[in-house]
Amino acid sequence: MNDPTAPLGPLELLWRAVSEGDEYAAVEVLDDALADGWGEEALLLDVIAPVQERVGADWAADRMTVAQEHAATAVNERAMAALAHHRQQAPPGPPRRGRVTVTCVDGEWHAFPARLVAETLRLRGWQVDFLGAQTPTQHLIAHLHHTEADAVLLSGSIPTHLPTAHAAITACQAIGVPVMAGGRAFGPDGRHARALGADHWAADARGAAAALEAGLPLPSTAAVRQAVDDLPHLTDQEYTLVRQTRSQLIKQTLVHLETRFPAVRAYTDTQRERTAEDLAHIVDFLATALYLDDAGLFTDFMTWTADILEVRKVPARSLVAGLALLADQLHDFPRALAMIRQGTAALNDRTARPVPDPGTHA
């Protein structure tokens, strides 16, 4: 049983500072922890990282607004930067191991996980070029030509960017640079990283560091791979056609919703905009599932979306209606129809449940 009179540890104190948007208190927490003997890597991965996970969980549970989540993330990022600046004043670390590039997939704006990896690798003695969020593939390749990096660590949090990640992986490998993938987008077990031909996958920063220290094999540059070489199911063109007709699919589904459900006609402009955004996410995840031929990616997104909607007091049954209308437009796409049926079944089978309480993280 926890002792309420016991002093709070750095994890609890940082959470308090971050959730209150107090940058100075957050930096002070880390300074005090360093003075108490905490190592920088432990602060990065056992304090800062769990606090950020709790920020995301509180947003999902509707305990934080989008603005509050952004503010909390910004404070946590500043705390991580302050920790890095502290290192510049310390004695030199271990000798350099090599040079690596850490970057996010083009379109991926969740840079926090990649920054954690970059700072961890610097602590381990690597020279790190951190390119941040949304790095276009052509600029990544130009950077690699200029720096002759030993490896690229590619971070992705949102699965809809996986086709873009695939292009980045093959482009890096074509010039002889191995790629390690990481982040939630690549699946909890790295299965999407393997499907896209990445040279390695790491579940977290410590795993990435260990893999680099063990050495990544150099990729073959004998031939440039095409997407279909890794994913032969793409020959059916379903992914390509869904992507090409994305705007039409969203527009027509919204029109049919208004026709079949008169209540939708009374939506405000804001409600219509939110509905269109939800439909866009559904189409994007369906397209990505088609790209990878992984129905689970689509069903997981649908049930997650249902959880989020219900926490916000929005009936999740509206998702089933949207899927039915989308299926009507994709009647000539057997893989897409099968995935929509599985998504519908998952929604019908699920029971209303709250987003898990993140309290155990603090």
Rank of each mutant, 00 (worst) to 15 (best):
Ala60Glu: 13
Thr65Met: 11
Ala84Leu: 14
Arg96Asp: 11
Thr160Gly: 04
Trp109Lys: 11
Val152His: 00
Leu153Ile: 15
Val128Glu: 02
Leu131His: 02
Arg96Pro: 08
Thr65Ala: 13
Trp126Ile: 06
Val102Gln: 08
Ala71Ser: 13
Gly125Arg: 03
Phe130Pro: 01
Thr147Ser: 10
Arg87Gly: 11
Pro91Leu: 15
Leu140Ala: 01
Pro92Asp: 12
Ala133Gly: 01
Glu69Tyr: 05
Asp150Arg: 04
Ala149Thr: 05
Ala114Glu: 02
His70Trp: 10
Trp109Asp: 06
Ala133Ser: 10
Ala72Trp: 07
Ile158Cys: 04
Thr160Tyr: 06
Ala151Thr: 03
Gly132His: 01
Pro92Gly: 11
Cys104Leu: 09
Thr164Asp: 01
Arg115Met: 07
Thr120Asn: 05
Glu69Gly: 07
Arg63Glu: 11
Pro136Cys: 03
Val66Met: 15
Glu77Ala: 15
His139Tyr: 10
His143Cys: 03
His85Ser: 12
Ala118Ile: 02
Trp59Arg: 10
Pro163Ile: 00
Arg97Ser: 13
Thr101Met: 13
Leu154Phe: 04
Asp129Tyr: 06
His85Cys: 09
Met80Phe: 04
Asp58Pro: 01
His110Met: 07
Gly107Pro: 07
Pro159Gln: 07
Gln68Ser: 15
Gln89Gly: 15
Pro113Cys: 08
Trp126Arg: 04
Ala82Ile: 08
Val128Leu: 06
